[in-house]
Nucleic acid binder design. Structure first.
Length: 270
DNA sequence: CTTTAAACCTGGTCGC
DNA sequence: TGCGACCAGGTTTAAA
């Protein structure tokens, strides 16, 4: 499942094929994604030159001359660069056409999105409310401590709140809390400044490790060049209920918080 | 304001 | 072998 590291790896994979190039149109085979894909997208994109390929949270932000193309992979999406004319498969809902190649979105569950915004990216309603970027220098213990102040909800859930920190999903929330030694049910506002600093550092390390590992959720993630990943990050706790903690040997526990599974070590995380 | 639950959708896995 | 039940994932929105 694409979380922030997978989105970042995808972004890096497609960037060389897009940056500075001219778009020649788009092919929309299914308009029913998370949001309706704009009707006249192909016409809007034709002739646009790509200025940059960025990322905000889990959104891929393709800035063009007269607007911004926003892509989100949802839970099952992937992007690949293919030769123009490559035959589409069952869930290949969208192609962005370049002069000699296409960028193709495959998304079986259709929770992803393709949006066109006439203006700078940070003005888009879906991006404007996002919290701090966890890999930016602005994200540190103080920033986290300030952001969770007064919140009574469990730190696990607050960590996944995109208005607090952008792009932390279910897997890396559990992983980061383990690295920080913080119990997932801790009321967020009760975290000390010191523990906030540890947690912020743990989030950063977790995400960077996952990016370095080439993406850790490879079940339906495909690298931008089409090669399925063969290297998976070793989880400390995620999906390891009952298995021994890699730190102390205690069995990992699974609980449900806000309808989502959380995994943690009852001994290492307090 | 915060918090919670439901909604979107498909594919995989489980038990019968 | 087929079927139904259930789960996973991210995010927004509505309701409490």
């Amino acid at each position: 499942m694409p979380e922030l590291p997978e989105v970042e790896i995808t972004r890096r994979g497609i960037e060389p094929f897009l940056a500075g190039r001219v778009l020649t149109g788009a092919e929309v085979r299914h308009h029913g994604l998370r949001w309706p894909v704009p009707r006249n997208l192909s016409r809007a994109l034709r002739g646009e030159r790509v200025r940059s390929v960025g990322r905000r949270g889990k959104y891929i932000v393709i800035e063009c001359g007269r607007g911004t193309l926003l892509l989100h992979l949802g839970m099952s999406g992937n992007l690949r660069i293919l030769p123009a004319g490559a035959p589409p498969g069952r869930h290949d809902h969208f192609d962005l056409r370049l002069e000699d190649k296409i960028l193709r979105l495959r998304d079986p569950r259709r929770f992803g999105s393709v949006l066109w915004w006439r203006g700078p990216a940070d003005g888009h309603p879906l991006l404007a409310g996002l919290g701090v970027e966890p890999l930016s220098s602005a994200f540190d213990g103080d920033a986290l401590h300030r952001a969770v102040r007064g919140r009574k909800a469990a730190i696990k859930q607050v960590l996944m709140d995109s208005r607090v920190v952008a792009g932390i999903g279910n897997i890396y929330a559990s992983e980061s809390l383990f690295r920080a030694g913080v119990h997932p049910a801790t009321p967020a506002g009760r975290l000390s400044r010191e523990r906030s600093a540890r947690l912020a550092a743990a989030v950063r390390e977790t995400l960077l490790d996952a990016i370095a590992a080439g993406g850790s959720t490879l079940r339906d993630f495909v690298h931008a060049d089409g090669a399925a990943g063969c290297f998976q990050m070793r989880y400390f706790v995620y999906d390891r209920a009952g298995e021994p903690c890699r730190g102390c040997g205690q069995p990992i526990k699974r609980v449900v918080q806000g309808q989502r599974s959380t995994y943690y070590c009852p001994r290492c995380q307090r």
